[in-house]
């Protein structure tokens, strides 16, 4: 009973925060909204019993990448962008209504055609969300793609170091 309530709560927070990221005039506020969004998405993972993924999301994105973002924004001391023109409330309402209508029509159409995915309730997620199950999958079934991604990351890291160097050796 609690899970759907939590899901919609965190989904609403995530959507609000991502809109905030787009609309904030000040880069720091924008970055902060993005952090809230990432934390809300992490909470969504937690409601799906995928604790490991959720925590890693916090650890990697909110804890490391966004700290670097914020560091750079603060280091450059970016000014807030000026408000170019006031957004007309009526146009905004129009867009919101249009999006809602489109969503409703798409939903009805998909349901009519039987194209909606069936829901697999959290039991399977509970079994696959543990670090052990995840690691077993990752290191046996998907060992090759995993290693390839590792290689890709290594190449990207070396590339970043090379670009950051003043003179190419």
């Amino acid at each position: 009973m609690l899970a759907p309530v939590l899901f919609f709560l965190f989904a609403a927070v995530a959507i609000a925060a991502s809109i905030g990221t787009l609309l904030a005039r000040n880069p720091v506020n924008s970055a902060l909204s993005l952090i809230v969004n990432l934390l809300a998405v992490a909470s969504l993972y937690l409601t799906l019993n995928a604790a490991f993924i959720g925590i890693v999301q916090v650890l990697v994105y909110a804890g490391a990448i966004m700290v670097l973002f914020l560091f750079v924004i603060m280091l450059l001391n970016l000014e807030a962008t000026p408000v170019l023109e006031a957004i007309d409330k009526r146009i905004l309402a129009g867009y919101a209504g249009g999006t809602l209508l489109l969503g409703a029509i798409t939903y009805l159409l998909a349901r009519g055609l039987g194209a909606l995915p069936t829901f697999e309730i959290a039991e399977s997620a509970a079994a696959t969300g543990t670090p052990r199950a995840l690691a077993l999958n990752l290191f046996t079934t998907y060992a090759l793609p995993f290693e390839l991604i590792g290689l890709l990351l290594l190449v990207a890291t070396i590339g970043a170091v090379m670009i950051a160097k003043k003179r190419f050796v």
Binding site: A51, F52, A62, G63, L70, F71, M74
Partner: peptide
């Protein structure tokens, strides 16, 4: 008591920096 509490400690440590950083900014 979660399956990943050791990671959770690290995650909380890593977001603790926002207090200092935001206070500074």
């Amino acid at each position: 008591d979660t399956e990943v509490s050791a990671l959770l400690v690290l995650a909380l440590t890593s977001i603790a920096v926002y207090g200092v950083t935001l206070a500074g900014w």
